[in-house]
Nucleic acid binder design. Structure first.
Lengths: 148, 148
DNA sequence: CTGTATCCTTAGGGATACTG
DNA sequence: CAGTATCCCTAAGGATACAG
């Protein structure tokens, strides 16, 4: 059961965003879905940063409750689950993109493919639109048939 | 002395961003500087979300060490300090803006002035540029004379 | 006003074992 | 494979007192 972290509940949008996904792991899970196309528990678990299994389970439940992701049953195998981004989750793409750009600019250890960075800088809107459609298409194949 | 939080140090820009300012308070301090024009310890301390004094001191030191803010002595009163955003800090504006837009879209309790939201949506680049210049001008008055 | 210093609590999260 | 369940521990953060 996901905990209710202490919410600040001033009307501030920054504070709300932080209270919603401003923890150490949520955005990484969302990144895995958005950029790597990950959909299964095991994929997240084996992601580069090595999230702990209990933390992952908690974050997935939390994000689902927040309406940022959906949990589906795999149409190819009814025993498996798949996690996909909702439109509310996909709407976080711009936030991720801006973080990427900032880190690419100021951290020497950050690795972003030059052609990606270039598109972010010079063709931001189109890049996001294209990414969004890619995600939607990937999910469209399974979403309609098997909502959990 | 600011603690070194556990850094993940994969080359991922999202992970780096989270490790750098992905805590409960850093972005709120930056928000206070960027949008409210706050520059003094007391202003931050009395901000709406009521940050604890030790946490504030820690975050200010941390952000300074990261090169995101600068600590100056107040030219009007040598005993006082002022905190201002560096270019690296100002470069976080787009991240803040995207968070604002997302929250405005998905949280009913979030309050963003309609004219602000409209500018973000329809005139994003110009809005950010203008905001950036406003911040720089505000700081230009004191920055050159009194680096601590 | 601008911080330090302490004390204390809790929740976030790592490790690991276990289950359907 | 896809999670639960525990145990434990540390660091983040509240409260408050105090100092330059």
């Amino acid at each position: 059961m996901p905990k209710q972290t202490k919410k600040r509940d001033t009307g501030c949008p920054i504070a709300f965003a932080l209270d919603t996904f401003g923890d150490r792991w949520s955005l990484l899970v969302i990144r895995d879905m958005a950029f790597k196309g990950f959909q299964s528990y095991n994929q997240f678990l084996n992601s580069e940063e090595k999230i702990a299994t209990n933390v992952l389970a908690d974050r997935l439940a939390e994000l689902e409750e927040l309406g940022i992701i959906s949990k589906l049953t795999d149409p190819a195998d009814g025993r498996r689950h798949l996690y996909v981004l909702t439109s509310k989750g996909i709407a976080l793409l711009p936030v991720l993109i801006e973080m990427m750009q900032w880190s690419a600019q100021y951290d020497v250890n950050t690795i972003v493919k030059p052609e990606i960075l270039s598109r972010i800088v010079h063709d931001r809107e189109a890049f996001i639109t294209q990414l969004r459609e890619k995600i939607i298409n990937r999910q469209a194949l399974l979403a309609p048939m098997s909502r959990a």
